[in-house]
Design a protein around this nucleic acid. Structure first.
Length: 139
RNA sequence: CUACAAAUCCGCGCUAUCGCUGGGGCUCAAUGCCCGAGAGGAAAGUCCGGACAGCAUAGUGCAAUGCACCACCUAACGGGUGGGUAUGCGGUAACGCAUAACAGCAAGUGCCACAGAAAAUAACCGCCCUGCAAAGGGUAAGGGUGAAAAUGUGCGGUAAGAGCGCACGGUAAGAGCAGGCAACUGUCUUUACGGGUAAACCUUGCGUGCUGAAAUGCCCAAUAGGCAAGCGAUUAAGGGCGGCACGUCCGAUGCUUGCGGGUAGGCAGAUACAGUUGUACAGUGAUGUACCGCGUAGAUAAAUGAUAGCGGCACUCCGGCAACGGAGGGUACAAAAUCCGGCUUACAGGGUUUGUAGUUUA
RNA sequence: AGUUCUAUGGUGUAAAGGUAGCACAACUGAUUUUGGUUCAGUUAGUCUUGGUUCGAAUCCAGGUAGAACUA
């Protein structure tokens, strides 16, 4: 699908998980695992030809971080990490598959960019493994 | 110059790489490319007031609820400005500064623990009179309790005393005069003086219709069901008309089209106005008027960012008489969600003005 | 975005404006060979900052934390 020599690290709003129905089905049917301080919920769905291989959402619970400034900052950090590294996940998916993702911050202290970057890296590695496993199993 | 207080303003900058959300242009259109825009003084808390929208609505009262010295400003306000009064602080005083939910307890009702004789029409000790005494009567000076104890001082008066009388005061209410738009102040006079509490119920005066953008209006995919028309099917079940038959009407299922309600979703509401820089004028001031300019976020699982480097800024330590140099950690509070005016709360650091105090120089 | 309410020892709860109680828990001592039970005692509190009042857990205002509701 994507030629790897002209990869662009973009994240427009069409690659964000926004519809309420999609989010509800993700939270009901999806599988989850944790990479501290993140919790990742994902599920693989069939995709239409025009759409992108992944849809991602990000959130920080209000109980953990009280101030809106801190919540916005954390969400932006996770989003930046995902934007830069999301192309590592694409080869593991079949062309007719779309992955829905949700990142939830579960830590209690303000994180640094390097830590978030590393944990997103780990999360993507585990996701690749699981995707490959499920594809082999079904085939 | 330093310190303190008040008011007011600002509240990190630049570069590189990679991005995000609207607007405009190129493009048939999408993608893409180019241009330009993109958090605050509190955006916060949601404590008041409006705009706006829907519903309700003759008028008046009750209930509920809010406010409360006066005048002015304002779209409006529980906000602001100016004035008055009270209290506190400083000062010999004149006066200055700060604070105030600052109507009414002289409308009614309630409450005032403990202590104390008594907490509101007071009498324990005391004082005085009568009496041998017991007791009875008068009194509110003095004592003591308490947060609060019945107008202070002096003289007269009396058995002892007492606003009982008088003089000078204090407080409150009323009338007159003078000043002031008014609150109120000054003066004079009359009357009263048996507490406090309304942030106790309450009374008086003034005000308030209810609900909030998840308001409200509009467009409408798929699926299911509804209605209408057409096509197809009709020796089919069933029902109506009928005594029965024929007949006729309705009717199940299928397809197509249209209509209406309306879900997911989308659009409007929604960003050009009670806007604002500057100047002039009016006003003590809040503010208003006029002119010239300015255009300044619009997201919706929610954009305005991430990383790196350089530089500001104040602080600490070291070296130095100083200029300065080196190192270190720091660079606040905080994110629009329909909009506006206030209030309250949070805030690293810095600038300006005014006032007070101190020091130095001329 | 809006509305309503709550806050009392470690926990659960009382208290017409007048000394902040009760139960469980914790600790100490006694009883017991020891533990438990029981008995006696101790510690510890009105979310916070102001105001009204002679006096505030209570009344009023600002703040903090928490809970519920409106789809």
């Amino acid at each position: 699908m994507e030629s790897s020599n002209i990869q662009r690290f973009t994240l427009p709003s069409t690659e964000r998980l926004k519809l309420r129905k999609q989010i509800e089905t993700l939270f009901q049917t999806g599988e989850a695992f944790s990479v501290y301080p993140l919790r990742v919920i994902y599920c693989i769905t069939p995709r239409e030809t025009a759409s992108t291989p992944s849809l991602a959402g990000f959130s920080v619970p209000k109980k953990k971080m009280k101030l809106a400034v801190q919540r916005n900052r954390i969400k932006r950090l996770i989003r930046e990490s995902w934007r830069v590294q999301k192309h590592d996940l694409a080869p593991a998916l079949l062309p007719d598959q779309q992955i829905h993702l949700f990142f939830i911050f579960t830590g209690k202290d303000m994180p640094v960019h390097a830590d978030i970057y590393k944990s997103v890296q780990k999360a993507i590695a585990t996701l690749r493994k699981k995707c490959v496993q499920t594809n082999e199993h079904t085939s």
